Structures are given as C-alpha cells and as structure tokens.
Amino acid sequence: MSDPSTPSSSAPPQKTFSWRSQAFRALVYQCVAVLVIALAVFYLANNTATNMRARGIQSGFDFLTGAAGFDIGESLFAFDSGEPYWRAYLVGMTNTLRVAVVGILLTTLWGTLIGVGRFSRNALVRGLCVAYVELFRNIPVLLQLLMWYLLFTEVLPASTEPWVLGPLFLSKGGLNFPIPVWATGQLWAVWGAVAGLLAAWAYRRYALRAFEQTGHSKSMFWAPLAIILACSVLGWVLGGAPMEVNAPVQGEFAIENGGSLTPEFLALLLGLTVYTAAFVAEVVRGGIQAVATGQAEAASALGLGRGQTMRLVMLPQALRVIIPPMTNQYLNLTKNSSLAVAIGYPDVVSIANTAINQTGRAVECIAIIMLVYLSTSLFTSILMNWYNARAAIKER
C-alpha cells in the first residue's frame, strides 16, 4: 500500500522558471523583443514631434474638424467645400471602396473565365487566353491605367456627339445611363432583396441536407437567385410598382440627367480589373491542375460533360488551393487603387494629398491613408480566411 504522504505520480509537473528551460528563455526573448520595438517606436515618435516643434510645424488631427475648402468632383453623397476634412476623407474612402469592391467582383468573374479557358479544347480560345495572361500581367499597372484613361479622354467622341448605345451615352465625359427615381417601391424592393437573401440561405441549407440524405442534387445557384429576384420584385410591387426613370438626355453642351460614371472611374476600374484578372486566371489554372486527373476521368465515366465536370467536380475541389493566393490578388487590387491619383480620380490618396498641401499635416494625412488601407486589407483577409475555412476539407 502506497504512502499517502508521497506525491502521486499522475500529478502534473510544476512549472519551474529556470534559465535552462527552453520555454522560459523563449518567453524572455519575446518580452525583450517587444520592449525594444516599443522603445524604438517611442523614440521615433518623440524625435519626430520634437523636430516638428523646433521647426514650427504644427501637428495633430485637429485639422479634421476645419473646413476643407475644396470641392470633390465625384462622390456617392453630396459634398461642398465648406464641410470639414473628415467628411472629405469619408468621400475619398467611399470612392476607394467603390473601386475595390466592384473591381474584386469583376476580377473574380473575368479571371475565372480566362483561367478555365486555358483548358479549352478549342485552340483559338486557349491561345487567346494565354495571350491575354502574358500580355496584361507583364505590363505595369500604372501604364495600363494611363492607357485606359487616354482611351476615354482622347479616342471617344466629345459630349456633344456621344455614342448612343440604346439608353446609354458614351463620350469623353464618361458613361451616362438611366436610373430609377427613388420612391417607396425601391425601398420595399431593397427590403425584399434582404428577405430574399435570408430565404435563399435557408433554401441552400435545405438543399444540402436533402443531398446528403438522398443523393439527389438541387439547384444551388439558379434557384437561390430566383428566390432573391422574386422577393425583390414582390417588394417593388407591394411598394406601388413605381416606373418613373431618370433617363439621360443630350444637352446643348453635355449629357444631362441620369446616372454617370466618370472617365477616371472607368479607367481605374478597367485597368485594375484587366491587370489583376491575368493573375487570377493563373491562380485558377494552377488550382484546377492541382486536382488529380482521376477526378475528371471518374466524372467522365459517370456521364458528365466537360462543362459539368469543370463546374461540379474540378472547381469545387480546386477552391482549397485557389482561395489563399486569390486573397493576395484581392489585396493587391485594393492597394493598387492608390494609383488613382495618377489619373485624377478622387480616392483617399488624392484627398490626402490635397489636405497635405493645404494644412501641412503630412504625418497625420499619411497615417490616415495607412489606416484606411490597413483596415480594408485586414477586413478582406478575415473574410477570405473565414471562407477558406468553410471550403477546406473537413477531416473525420
């Protein structure tokens, strides 16, 4: 019988803080590294502030509440020169996000099509996809932005003689298009779309459970899309079905009324989309090639066509390889949007440059730019990492 005074052999070992412990030494090294970095940052910040005071340079973010004193040519909401700098930065940030979000969507669609086209049996299609990738990914993105901007401002006709494409007007002034006049029906349509998204999500969950139980697949794209559209139309009808449209018309000197996209926005969007899509196409191609060829052969043995094999077998398995490098391309597109200042698009960098010239607060303005791009990049990374975790193979 064992002596109760002796310690049990199953008791967890006590942690000893000894320099011979590798874990303890690693903890000390990490603490020292953090302390050194903090002291370096403090020294640089203090030295910068001291030098700025010695030279009579003002510092601080109090200028954000002062009147901006300049107009912004393109904005999602009204802005005039009497409003504060923080609102001007908000306009620049929304302009940056507008390009980034739309560019990511278009880049994903176009790049995926080009990447899948690399596997086409048609030699012409395959050759065009290869030529596209090799051409646009090897030309600097800044040159491509300038090329598209010159195309819109030099090649297209003047606003007095635009190209008319149905209800659309295309000229040096940009693209003009009809927009609905906002009324109660549009608001109900938005709420209907929100309800449709929830219903589509519930339908997809039901379809997945039914597939796991019966093995019969249901539509996972067209049916949810039809649900969203049906709910939107239902909301629009319940709101009175307003039909009034603000259409663009040819004026004496320019296109009047309707909505418009400036040549700067179009040049930036097309330049970033065309450039980044070339890299996305290579990511998609590599992801598909990473899937074992036996998967395609098994799908063919089951009677699936090439299109069905690519859509139902190859691409879903390639996602776990595609998503991580695709995230890098999304981040590159967002950060490359800072080149908008080269063609006069009023993004957050352009607004910051104007604020620096007027206030002299270079450090603060650059810090705001860094914060905007850091936050957008981190949000994109978090969202894509979450999606990557959902698409990853679950080990049993």
Score class of each variant (00 low, 15 high):
74 E>S: 10
119 F>V: 10
74 E>Y: 05
136 F>Q: 14
57 I>D: 14
151 L>H: 00
133 V>H: 01
147 M>H: 00
153 T>M: 00
78 A>Y: 00
43 Y>W: 10
151 L>K: 03
78 A>D: 11
130 V>T: 12
51 N>H: 11
142 L>Y: 05
66 G>P: 00
134 E>F: 02
54 A>I: 07
140 P>V: 09
103 G>F: 07
128 L>G: 06
49 A>H: 03
132 Y>H: 09
78 A>K: 05
116 V>I: 15
51 N>G: 11
123 A>W: 02
90 L>S: 12
110 W>F: 15
104 I>R: 12
81 S>N: 12
141 V>E: 05
54 A>F: 02
133 V>I: 12
56 G>H: 08
67 A>V: 10
121 R>T: 06
84 P>F: 13
140 P>R: 10
94 T>R: 07
140 P>G: 11
89 Y>Q: 05
128 L>T: 06
90 L>Q: 10
100 A>M: 07
85 Y>F: 13
75 S>N: 12
75 S>W: 02
122 N>Y: 02
47 N>F: 05
45 A>R: 13
76 L>F: 06
100 A>E: 03
71 D>I: 03
132 Y>R: 11
92 G>C: 10
99 V>P: 04
151 L>G: 10
116 V>F: 07
147 M>F: 06
112 T>N: 03
141 V>G: 01
102 V>T: 14
134 E>P: 01
145 L>D: 07
53 R>A: 15
47 N>R: 14
59 S>W: 00
125 V>L: 13
122 N>K: 03
155 V>T: 04
52 M>A: 14
104 I>L: 13
77 F>D: 05
128 L>M: 11
131 A>S: 12
57 I>T: 14
77 F>T: 09
61 F>A: 11
129 C>M: 12
76 L>T: 05
91 V>A: 05
118 R>S: 08
158 A>Y: 00
84 P>S: 15
131 A>L: 15
59 S>A: 09
105 L>W: 01
77 F>A: 14
140 P>C: 09
115 G>P: 05
155 V>F: 02
155 V>Q: 01
109 L>D: 10
45 A>E: 14
108 T>V: 06
117 G>V: 07
93 M>Q: 02
75 S>A: 15
66 G>A: 13
